[in-house]
Design a protein around this nucleic acid. Structure first.
Lengths: 227, 227
DNA sequence: AAGGATCCTCACAACTTCCTAACGGCGAAA
DNA sequence: TTTCGCCGTTAGGAAGTTGTGAGGATCCTT
């Protein structure tokens, strides 16, 4: 995933709100919270959410109003929490633009599963994490490199080494660090291999391999990936 | 409305099934029904639905299996009905690819509202259920492959493997991933089998099995399906 | 019980990848 | 200037991976 999913949680019960925030953050969501409808709309405007979780029993505003105001400018999935199990409430919330409706009390598992289901079809989840290296495009997830429209083939070791660089952009990496990360412990004396594979990567990725602009060497120290 | 929404309803209870069909037709949906998982998949292949409503308690097949088989070729929303309120059931169904989960008994209003919500965010249901692999045409929904006008027979294992590829087009899949997805956990050391079935798929699908253009190998890394 | 289909293991040739060694260029220190 | 260390590059054999064929074991159907 290129970027963490941002979730807006609006609930007037402080205990439930913090419990939800903790659970969600434990599952690698970025969470913003609000206790009222007005506050929720403000926070949403400031941090556009990928998913919104909204309690219907807000003190200052009708739940359906919050939903409609959000729907006016975002297509992010809206998941409604409510203590009322009345089917009329559900119908109103869903028809106002909500995507799902969960009645309290609910299991945390279930809420998380419904969030996953909502995020799955969200338009933001289509992006694949790509990194540019000179004229080449690196897609780590698909394990694919294209340069000038053509596929570039990398060997396993080349991938492993490139991954270390892409994961630490701009950072100076010592020979030891690189060898340990790409080859594993025990291979820390194979400086020759490292030089070899750096050359391979430059030849395959850089526009002018003899004058690299992104895979740079700092003599005596190590290598640096400059995005 | 330019075109009526097609709904597939799968339930083994004849009374509930006909009641649902009547209600839905009264709301201008076009309804197709089935009583078993197998029948449901057949009907779905024949009349690609815009939304599917599936009961989990089917006599012949796991509910999650039905969901996964549908998800293999269509993005249409799947709404699950179930008598079981256990949160584990919900999590499994949702993670298998379902979009919503309603526990029986439910109000007709609510089901209709959830259907509207599902239909609202459904993108243009143009997802073609067929994929081209060289000279062969793969129809995942109907579980049928044709090549040069003739039917090609695939064994269950071959289907399972092919399905993984078609679901991850362009992405490199490691041996481990493929073995786990097609054979299940525990079979991760059977590299020989994987080579064998790759050869089978290539022989049956590719134009020139010795020089594959779509089922590609990247030595040391895994395989890639290039559409 | 026989037949057929499916699944899996083994073996070997062809291929790719990996690593080591060696050579020349460059810059800094003696 | 010489010496030394570090870096980039090339070449070739070792090691691992893949494609392919044959054959046995298992399961299901007839």
């Amino acid at each position: 995933m290129t970027e963490a999913t941002h979730v807006l949680v609006v609930d007037d019960d402080p205990d439930l709100l913090s419990a939800l925030a903790i659970t969600l953050r434990a599952h690698h969501y970025v969470v913003h919270t609000a206790r009222t409808g007005t506050e929720g709309l403000e926070v949403a405007a400031q941090h556009p959410p990928d998913i919104a979780v909204i309690d219907l029993g807000l003190p200052d505003m009708e739940g359906t109003t919050v939903i409609e105001r959000l729907r006016a400018w975002t297509d992010a999935p809206i998941l409604v929490l409510s203590g009322r199990a009345d089917s009329l409430d559900k119908v109103e919330a869903l028809d106002a633009g909500a995507d799902d409706y969960v009645t309290k009390p609910f299991a945390a598992d279930e809420l998380l599963a419904r969030l996953r289901a909502a995020a799955r079809r969200a338009p933001t989840s289509d992006a694949s994490p790509v990194v540019e290296v000179g004229g080449a495009t690196v897609d780590l997830a698909a394990r694919r490199v294209t340069k000038a429209g053509l596929d570039v083939h990398l060997t396993p070791t080349e991938w492993q080494l490139l991954e270390v660089f892409v994961r630490n952009p701009g950072k100076l990496l010592s020979r030891q660090t690189l060898l340990r990360s790409a080859w594993g412990p025990g291979y820390e004396s194979a400086a020759g291999s490292l030089r070899l594979y750096m050359a391979q990567l430059r030849r395959k990725l850089e526009d002018d391999p003899a004058r690299p602009k992104h895979l740079l060497n700092e003599p005596g120290l190590g290598y640096r990936f400059q995005p």
